[in-house]
Amino acid sequence: MLTHFIENASSFGQDIDSLFSLITILAGFWFILAELILFYFIFRFRRKKEEPAKYVTGEKKSEMKWIKIPHHLILVCDVAIVIGAIFVWVKVKQDTPPIDEEIRVIGQQWAWSFVQPGPDGLLDTADDISTVDKLHIKVDTTYRFHLESVDVVHSFSVPVFRLKQDAVPGRTISGWFKATKEGEFDIQCAEMCGLGHGVMAARIFIQSEEKHNEWMTASASRTNSTQLLATTPSQKNKTKQKQNG
């Protein structure tokens, strides 16, 4: 149902969309039933001279069943939804599949910086490629991202992936995604982060492996002139460790 409004480009997007459909069908059933009964009663029991109101306490067993049966049925629906929700949650946020690539995502007022390994395939080395407001990734590749913030709370949101995670200053929060479709999509900041929150827009470029490698070779040659927009606490620690070692 959700793909009618926005396409899905990640491996777990389908799970979230199915959960959405499950909840919409179960909740929608109760919603339509309740509205139909409500409007039927409003119409059927409108004031008529010849028909005085009934006296019903609602405390007899035969009357209470009209509340108790739906009560138990709703509980059953809730159990189904809870199971579905936990299944999806564990898959997206708790379990991590085997990782192919690692990237660093840094939020700051008001831009997104992305750091990915250069030709040596290792993060936090001299040939890292860093970009601002543009994230280039390979399709069908599982990425682990390390999310950081240098100032206030931001939230890294890629709607086509159905992915969102807050970036909290002082912490590094990790997660994963795997793109299943090539294309170019929005990245939004989903947490109010000050004056420029409304322009904290970035784009994600999902390309085939070959095209991505072309981009990477082209960027790697430029990388020495590219400066990181900001230094994050974890990078500070890394430099310290290097100095100590």
């Binding site: 929700a85 999806v88 159905r162 969102k164």
Partner: peptide
């Protein structure tokens, strides 16, 4: 309220 859909 369902965590799975709230991610989105």
């Amino acid at each position: 309220g369902a965590s799975g859909t709230d991610i989105y």
